[in-house]
Every structure is written in C-alpha cells, then in structure tokens.
Design a protein around this nucleic acid. Structure first.
Lengths: 254, 254
DNA sequence: TTTTTTATGTGCGTTACCCCGCATAAGGGT
DNA sequence: ACCCTTATGCGGGGTAACGCACATAAAAAA
C-alpha cells in the first residue's frame, strides 16, 4: 500500500559529523569506510567486549542499552545520523558497559578502530566534533537518569517518542510496546496503558508494532522538560556542525 | 575527642591525574594552579553557566547534581581525588546541565580554562588521562541511571555509601539524611527508614549529620551489582594512572 | 483458508514510595 | 544552663508501578 521507494544508498556525509569535516580530512578517511546494514534488533556492540569499529550512522536509530544481571534493562541514550556508535574507542576505555542495539533499521559507515584513532590523534576537526558529540551524549544520559527517577511512564514515553521521531524521516515508528518497555525500563503493561491514553487523546495511533504520531505539537506540550533540555543541547551541537559544513555562518537559528 | 591533626596542604599530585603526568608536563601547568578550599555545600559550577576553571581535586567529594524545574534532584556522578570537575571545558560544550556541589569538604587545585585547553590541545598525556577519566564518569552515570530505575532505596543507599567511602580517608561521613535524599532523588523519610534498617543490622551507626560505617564487608554483600560495576571501571582507570605514575608496571592488582 | 505465533488489553492483589503533618530529640550558640 | 534551630522518627492515606495470569486480536505461516 505504501509507496515503495527504491532506497538509494545514503552517502557517508548524510552523517552530520562527516558532513562537518573538511574535504581533505574526509578524504583521508573515506577509503577505509565500509557501508553496513543495521537491521532491526541487531547489536553493534556488546557490553564488556572490545570494539574494533566505529559506526557513523546515516539513517536509523541506535539505542545504548544497559542490561542488568537479572535481565532488567534501561536505555541510556539514543543516536541517529547526528552521531556515531563507539565512543569508547577514542575515549580510551577499550570497552563499554552498555550494549548498542538497533532500534530502527538503517545504515552506517564503519571505520576500523586504528584509522579512527589515528585521525583522532591528529587533534584536528574530527577530534573536536567527536568530543562535542560525546558531550551531547553525556547530557542525554544525565537527563535520562533524572527522568527515570522523577517522571511517570507516560511522560517518559512522550520523551522517547519525540527523541525517536527527531531521528526519523517519517512520523511512524516500527516498534512493539514490549520493546519500548525494555527501553524505558518499565513493565510492558505500563506502556500499553500510557500509549492507550495518548491514543485516546488523539496524539498517536498504533497497531501491532507500529506507532504513528498524529499530533506532534500536542505531544510536545504533554512531555516533561527533559525532552527540551536534550533537544536544545543536541541542537547546539548540530548548529555548530552545520556552521562548519556550510563554511558560512549561515542562518543562525537560535 | 578526635585527635586534631594539623592538616598540611595536600600537594597537587595527591590528585591521581596530576600524579600520572610526567614531570615536564606537570611543571608546565603547575605555575598556574590556585589552591582552593571546597567548603561543604559550596558549588564549583552552576548548571548552564560558563565555567572558567577546572578543579583537580586533592581531597573531599564533589557530586554532579541535576536539579529539575520543580526542585527535584538527582546525583549523576561523584568525584574525589581520582578526578576533576569541569570536563565540559575540554569536551567543547562550554557549559553543563548539571551542578557540581561539594558533598564532603576538601581542596582542589584550580586551573584557568585557557591553560587546560592549551595543554589538552597538545594531545599529550593529559589529554589521554582526562578522556579516560571522562569515560569512567560516563560509566558511573549509566549505572546510576539504571540503578535509579530498578533498585530500591536501601540498595541505592548502600551503593552511595560505598562510593563515598572510597573517596574518603575515614569510615565516617558528615552528611544529613536530607542531603543524602537529595542525592538519591528520593524522600528524606525513605533514607531514614533505609538507614534505620542498616543500623539495625549493625552495618552503620549514625547520629545527626554523621554516618559511620561499621561493617564495610557486610555493606558490600548487601549492595546491588551497580557498585561493583562502577568500582571496577573506576579501578581500571586508576590502575592505568598508577602504572603511569610509578613508571614500572608495578603490582598488578586486579 | 486455517493454524500458529506474537502483540496487545485487562484485571487484581501487592509493594515501594510519595506527600503531609507532627512529635521528639540532638546539637550549637549565647 | 538555657533556648532554638535543625535533624530525625513515625504514622496514615494515597498512588504509580509491579508481578502475574489470562483473554483477545492481529499478523504471519501453514
């Protein structure tokens, strides 16, 4: 029923970080890129294991998920084409305590660790971009922590929907309530109820594994402050990146 | 009653990161250090405001605290003499969304932003040390987020006590239950109850604003996995730092 | 189609925590 | 010694979320 667009391979510089690199820096890296699929549910990194690539995401969403011994889990942060997966490679920690799970299918350009490290060590643009991205990630993690602590499931769901939507070209996401519950670290029934209320209010519409956002402005009114904080910080990074990629200072959207 | 030791000013290299620097690197920075007191409850950085110093902590504990619009708060991470306050300075984010509050009085050597940035840009040892420390902070933040979500107040209190104890020379901390509640993001009464149970079990002993840990091994048995994860990751950093400062690979405490 | 799998709806008892108010006691200051 | 501030103890009512068990419905597979 939906129009099937033959998906062209997105170029590396669909990724905002790569887009912001100067051509010479980019061309030093580009020969070493591997284009990879990120199918739904696949894992880009397991907790504790050594990573040997970074992934520059061009489309799709990756969740950083922490899973505890008893199986309980919680999402720490999400990334889309504004970022990468694998920060521990340049942060020096060899491994991470979280898993990177594909929450919405997409693609990435994969770069072997040694090339990333080499470029990072040059101390040029990429280093600054990566650190800035990491800082945005930290903000997101803090906000998630505090939101987990103090806000009800429904508010958290709103936040989660908006953060996901910001990273997708459509207003529809492909995800079961069970998986959302895992991300938020709550019961599945809790998500069912919260989603029911949102549907009741006409903000969303869902059917088995699909959630469509009908009224984004209303969602933004209902969500807690946490979304705005993360978004604002993320945009601050994005503006910086955008201003670098255009060369001109451009329209200075505040 | 307690023996009053005339406190000598702790040298800069009581801080593990500074200790790990080579002498030449250290001496490039040391002329610019300012020794500062960190009195209990003071703030090293306010959320949203620009920082113009980093603080290399020599003793005491600093909490990174996030305070929401409605006043509710939660601790994101803690640092003692193993680290610094002010990572946003080199991460490129100018400001942070969290506040840095002194949880246990102590001291720090303060370095103006420009000197830190200059040294960081050299891409030498300090850069690696700072990034590694940041990575440890990220781990702590993730773990805090997930612990907030899934573990009861009593377990969180155990974790908090142990993390604090690890950063102090004594087994006694000077802190009211009210403040602990702010850190954990729970009600004060919740802390009172949990602390009561721990005292009942003979693990701790407290009186107005003082908590003494009597049986640390028992505390470690009662705490959730979250403590061990953070500790292990923190030690990984510390070992690396220690091996650098001694020059020799040293006793490889696992 | 029919069957099987998987996602969602619902109800109910339980629990940990919240919010509020107030009693009590422990220190610090004068 | 006193007061007075401030930390802690305690209770009662309310609620959001949990855990479990099961009904139903929607896809997917046969």
């Amino acid at each position: 029923m939906t129009t099937k667009v033959s998906a062209a391979r997105p170029p590396p510089r669909t990724n905002h970080l790569l887009a912001a690199l100067s051509d010479t820096d980019f061309e030093r890296l580009s020969p070493h890129f591997d284009y990879v699929d990120m199918p739904l549910g696949s894992s880009l990194s397991e907790s504790g294991s050594r990573m040997d690539h970074v992934y520059f995401i061009t489309d799709g969403i990756v969740s950083l998920l922490y899973v505890m011994e008893n199986g309980a889990s919680a999402e720490i942060a999400v990334t889309g084409n504004e970022g990468i997966v694998g920060i521990s490679l340049f942060m020096g920690g060899e491994s991470t305590t979280s898993r990177a799970i594909v929450q919405s299918e997409g693609h990435a350009y994969r770069l072997p660790a040694r090339f990333l490290r080499a470029e990072f060590e040059r101390g040029g643009e990429l280093q600054h971009l990566l650190l800035r991205f990491t800082q945005a990630l930290i903000t997101q993690m803090s906000q998630t922590a505090v939101c987990n602590r103090h806000h009800e499931v429904e508010l958290q769901l709103c936040r989660w929907l908006l953060l996901s939507l910001d990273r997708l070209p459509t207003n529809e996401l492909h995800m079961t309530q069970e998986l959302i519950a895992n991300m938020l670290g709550v019961r599945r029934e809790g998500v069912t109820e919260a989603a029911g209320r949102l549907q009741e209010a006409g903000l969303i519409e869902y059917r088995r594994g699909h959630i469509k956002v009908l009224d984004r402005p209303a969602l933004e009114k209902r969500v807690c402050e946490c979304y705005a904080v993360v978004k604002k910080e993320s945009d601050r990074l994005l503006n910086y990146v955008a201003s670098k990629s255009t060369g001109a200072s451009g329209s200075h959207v505040r």
